[in-house]
Amino acid sequence: MPEKEPSICEEKNYNKLFRDYYEPVTKYIYYKCGNLQQAEDIVQNVFIKLWKLCATVTFSKAKSYIYTASNHSFFNEVAHKKVVLKHQKTIIENTTHESPDFLMEIDEFRDKLKNAINTLNPKEREVFLLSRIENKTYKEIAEITELTVKAIERRMGKALKELKAILGKELKL
């Protein structure tokens, strides 16, 4: 007999699931819809449902339940909007030309990059952001999106090609 799983009906287990998954799932939904309020509402409702179903969902299945339920309730909601992204303050260390000119140009470039990411097809955008910003492996992304790793590789490749097509002429490297 395998060891008995912790029950989600116990508050400390439920809280653990919430603290582990609320943020990544919300970001995932946000990357799909571009509306943070909507994303938070969707995921909070999924957690409310999870509490009501605590006796029927096992602890090990909870993660996939949360992602799948959030994903499905997103499909019922409306249009995709732009995602608001911020650049981290740190500047790439290994660049050799940090002249004032370069710094101004890089600011401009970063704005263009954010715009370009928003012009991506939402399917490519979510894969690209989950990988590049959330550092998820293709295997993890494949689980979340219920796609194959091959499909994720393809979407990733498409996203990069499109970004290069938009931004390539800005880059005189």
């Binding site: 650049h87 740190t90 910003i133 990069l160």
Partner: peptide
């Protein structure tokens, strides 16, 4: 390579998990 490196410097939204809980 440049697009990739710059993209990795991007940040998603800040999310307050405790407030949501």
């Amino acid at each position: 390579d440049f697009i990739n490196k710059e993209s990795q410097l991007l940040q998603g939204p800040n999310i307050d998990t405790e407030a949501a809980l």
